[in-house]
Design a protein around this nucleic acid. Structure first.
Length: 428
DNA sequence: TCTGGGGTCCTAGGACCC
DNA sequence: TCTGGGGTCCTAGGACCC
């Protein structure tokens, strides 16, 4: 039996999450904005039809949205983080071999399903997800992950297919490979699209038929792998176990420019605290953290400044108090007055499992991990129960009144994670 | 006069993804 | 006025070592 992968994803996923809890949004154009209400990052077909592009800055389309009745939402990560778990639970019922690829996309291995039954199974899966979670999806089937991705792309673009496209069917494969442009291939961005064009490719079929040495020369091993995948030779495995993450970052733009040190300290301390939470959730630690902040290139005629500073810890840690102290040191060391800063963040790389990490010598910077872990456990438990930020360190950087913010002016309720926000349904 | 070669590690930058 | 955030992988080139 031949190998087969599927890729399922949620249509206009964030918008669909909003629609699940507000029936008035059906058939209405809806968009969801990025952090700080900056850009459109999810659009329903109705919004796309109005010409709203992916990543378009909101201030450029504000008037259009108003005149066309587009419903606009800030990102509601509590909601968007909760819905995929429900969707994946449904997928697992159809195949135990699953790779959760992104917040709204999962690969399944359907190699054990008879070829003739695959499309039927995928239609059933779509309908079940729709019925149980309210999220509309599309499914692509292919002999490799790259082909499954391509099939998913076709399923989304061609409504007549009913949301499922099967590129393991030779007729479908030949038909679509000749009609899809190279830039729609997973892994081909604008620079590589130009290279493929220069190599004479007008369709995915042309890319598939390239000489592997030529494509390797132009696009390195990445390109060669891609060509093999298009030919049906799998180079990418299903990653059922998510690899441990290698880096972690918390960065935010400010709703208003920041011009004084105390405010910057508040923002960076908050980011550092969040970084600690994320590291603890994975049992990971770091022995160095980078703090950065910079002005905005959109502030023309203003002096520009961009700094980043690496602060080394005596040993790996994920203790919020340790991280905050280190990050504040980084800020103070590099701060300069006279600039209007637009963004700040804390970044770590080279994460290690904390339990197995090298200790410092006692007295030479060794941290009290037991005490710290107990304190952080209590902190995390409080914040899980009462909401993020309910309990913060009393240290520098945490003032009673926040002097900086990120914009979320149009956020919907936390329907799925706050009892008081659960929708009430009346039946007569 | 003749002026090595091969390996590792690290970093910055590019490209891509959602 | 207003332009996101968080990841991964690959390569080239320099530093360093024996």
């Amino acid at each position: 039996m031949s190998r087969a992968y599927t890729l399922s994803d949620g249509n206009s996923f964030y918008c669909s999450c909003e629609r699940v809890f507000d029936a008035r949004l059906a058939r209405t154009p809806v968009i969801v904005l990025s952090n700080n209400d900056g850009c459109a990052i999810a659009r329903t077909p109705e919004a796309k039809a109005l010409g709203i592009r992916m990543g378009e800055p909101f201030f450029k389309i504000r008037d259009l949205c108003k005149s066309q009745g587009v419903r606009v939402y800030s990102s509601n990560y509590a909601l968007y983080g909760d819905m995929p778990a429900r969707v994946n639970t449904v997928y697992r019922g159809f195949s135990p071999r699953i790779e959760i690829y992104s917040i709204d996309e999962s690969f399944l291995d359907l190699s054990d399903v008879r070829e003739a039954d695959r499309v039927t199974l995928c239609r059933d899966m779509r309908e079940t997800v729709r019925a149980w979670t309210g999220i509309p999806t599309c499914v692509g089937i292919g002999a490799t992950k790259t082909l499954a991705k391509l099939a998913n792309h076709v399923a989304k673009k061609v409504p007549e297919l009913g949301g499922v496209c099967d590129l393991t069917d030779p007729v479908q494969y030949d038909h679509w490979m000749a009609r899809i442009p190279p830039e729609d291939i997973w892994g081909v961005g604008p620079p590589n699209a130009r290279k493929l064009e220069a190599l004479g490719c007008e369709s995915v079929a042309d890319v598939r038929d390239l000489d592997t040495r030529a494509v390797r020369k132009a696009m390195t091993v990445v390109g060669e792998r891609l060509v093999q995948e298009l030919r049906g030779m799998a180079c990418l495995d299903l990653e059922e176990v998510a690899p441990t993450r290698k880096g972690c970052a918390v960065t935010r733009s400010f709703s208003d420019r920041v011009e004084n040190l105390a405010t910057m300290e508040q923002a960076v301390a908050t980011h550092a605290a969040r970084l600690g939470e994320k590291l603890r959730a994975g049992g990971l630690g770091t022995d160095h953290v980078t703090v950065f902040f910079h002005t905005s290139e959109h502030d023309r005629d203003r002096p520009q400044r961009s700094v980043s500073s690496v602060v080394t810890l005596p040993e790996a840690s994920n203790d919020t108090l340790v991280l905050v102290k280190a990050c504040l040191h980084g800020v103070r060391k590099t701060w300069r007055d006279g600039y209007r800063y637009s963004k700040a963040g804390v970044v770590t790389t080279d994460l290690v499992p904390l339990a197995a990490s090298q200790r410092a010598f006692p007295g030479l910077g060794q941290l009290d991990r037991d005490h710290g872990a107990a304190l952080m456990g209590a902190l995390d438990a409080c914040n899980r129960r009462f909401g993020r930020g309910s309990v913060v360190p009393g240290s520098a950087g945490f003032a009673p009144e926040r002097e900086w913010s990120t914009k979320f002016d149009m956020r919907s309720p936390r329907y799925t994670t706050r009892v008081e926000k659960v929708p009430v349904v009346m039946a007569a």
